[in-house]
C-alpha cells in the first residue's frame, strides 16, 4: 500500500506542476484570448535558467552557480517573462495568428539552442545535478527514507499551485480581470472605455508566461535534470489539451483538466502495457496520440466550454 501511495504522491507532484502551467495558459487564453503556441518554450526557459543558476558546477560547463532554490527559480521566472515580453511587444499589436505562429517558432528556436549550445545548455545530453531544496535535512528527518521528501516536495508544488490559483482568482475577479475579458470579447468597446488593449494583453501574456517559467523551475528541482526533450512541442499540446478539456476561463477547470488528462495519459500507458497484445505495442504511441487528438477535437465540437465552463457574473460583461 505504501508503494501505491508513494506512486500517487509522485503522480500528483507531476500533475501539480502541469496544473501550474495550465493556470498560466488559462490567464493567457481563457481570460485574455491569447493563443500561446509555444508553452514548452516558457516552461523550458524557466527550467533551464533555474538549472543554470541553482545547479551544481561541472567542468567545461557554464552555470552551476549553486544559487539557493528561491533565487534560482526567480531567475527562471524572470527569464520566461523577458522572452514573453519581447515577443509580446512584437506581435500583440497584430492579428492573433502572429502570436500563435511566433510563439510556436520560439519553442523550436529555443529547442535548437538547448540542443546545440553545448557550453551553455549541455547540448543534447542536457544538464543534470540539481540540489533539491532541503533534501538532506528532510531525508534525515525521515530516517534516510525519501518518502518523506516526496511528500514535502508535493506540498511545495501544491503550495505554489494554491498561491498561483488564489492569485489568479483575485486578479481575474478584480476590475483588472474584467478589463481583460472585455478586450477579449470586444476590443473596440473596451478601447472606447479607455482601456489600453495592447498593454493589458502584454501584461497578461507576460504574467502567464512567468507562471509557466515557475512550473519549469519546480520541474527541474523535481527531476534534477533538464534536456532538449523537455522543450518538445508535445508538452505544449498536452497543456492545451488539459485547458480545453478542463474548461478555459475557469481556474478550477484548468486544474481539474491537468489532473484528468495527465491521469488519462499515464493510465493509458498502464492499460496498453497490460491489455494490448504484444504485437500491438509498437503502435501504442501513435494510437495514444490519435486518441488524445480526437479527444481535443471532439471536446471542441461537442463541449467547447470544457467540463467546468467559464462562470461570468453579471457585472463581468461589458
Amino acid at each position: 500500500m505504501i508503494g501505491v501511495i508513494s506512486y500517487l504522491v509522485f503522480f500528483a507532484t507531476m500533475a501539480g506542476i502541469l496544473a501550474i502551467v495550465v493556470l498560466g495558459l488559462n490567464l493567457q487564453w481563457g481570460y485574455t484570448g491569447l493563443f500561446n503556441g509555444g508553452v514548452a518554450a516558457f516552461f523550458g526557459a524557466g527550467a533551464y535558467v533555474t538549472m543554470l543558476l541553482g545547479g551544481r558546477p561541472e567542468p567545461g560547463q557554464f552555470g552551476g552557480f549553486l544559487a539557493p532554490f528561491p533565487v534560482a527559480i526567480v531567475g527562471g521566472i524572470l527569464f520566461a517573462g523577458l522572452i514573453a515580453w519581447f515577443f509580446g511587444v512584437l506581435t500583440l499589436r497584430l492579428r492573433h495568428d502572429y502570436l500563435a505562429i511566433a510563439t510556436f517558432g520560439v519553442a523550436i528556436a529555443l529547442e535548437s539552442v538547448a540542443r546545440n549550445a553545448e557550453w551553455l545548455t549541455g547540448g543534447a545530453k542536457g544538464l543534470r545535478g540539481f540540489p533539491r531544496p532541503l533534501e538532506a535535512t528532510i531525508t534525515a528527518l525521515g530516517g534516510g527514507d525519501n518518502f518523506l521528501y516526496g511528500l514535502f516536495f508535493l506540498a511545495l508544488v501544491l503550495a505554489v499551485l494554491a498561491a498561483v490559483y488564489v492569485g489568479l482568482e483575485r486578479l481575474t475577479r478584480s476590475p483588472y480581470g474584467r478589463a481583460l475579458r472585455a478586450i477579449r470579447e470586444d476590443e473596440a468597446a473596451a478601447r472606447s472605455l479607455g482601456k489600453n488593449p495592447v498593454r493589458l494583453r502584454l501584461e497578461s501574456f507576460v504574467i502567464g508566461s512567468m507562471i509557466m517559467g515557475a512550473a519549469g523551475g519546480l520541474y527541474v528541482a523535481f527531476y534534477a535534470y533538464v534536456g532538449p526533450q523537455d522543450l518538445a512541442p508535445i508538452l505544449t499540446f498536452q497543456v492545451w489539451a488539459m485547458l480545453i478539456v478542463g474548461g478555459a476561463g475557469n481556474n478550477r477547470g484548468a486544474v481539474l483538466g491537468a489532473f484528468l488528462i495527465w491521469a488519462a495519459w499515464t493510465a493509458s500507458g498502464f492499460a496498453l502495457a497490460a491489455l494490448a497484445p504484444q504485437a500491438m505495442q509498437l503502435y501504442t504511441g501513435p494510437i495514444q496520440y490519435i486518441l488524445i487528438g480526437s479527444v481535443i477535437v471532439g471536446m471542441l465540437l461537442w463541449r467547447p466550454q470544457g467540463i467546468l465552463p467559464e462562470q461570468i457574473r453579471q457585472q463581468g460583461r461589458n
Binding site: 508503494g3 508513494s6 506512486y7 509522485f10 507531476m14 523537455d230 499515464t266 500507458g269 502495457a273 504511441g285
Partner: peptide, 19 residues
Amino acid sequence: DDQNDAKVGVDAAKALVDI
C-alpha cells in the same frame, strides 16, 4: 513505453518501482 518523453518514462518507471 517511454514515448521518448521524459515525463512519461519517469512516471512509468516510478509506477513499476512503487506499484
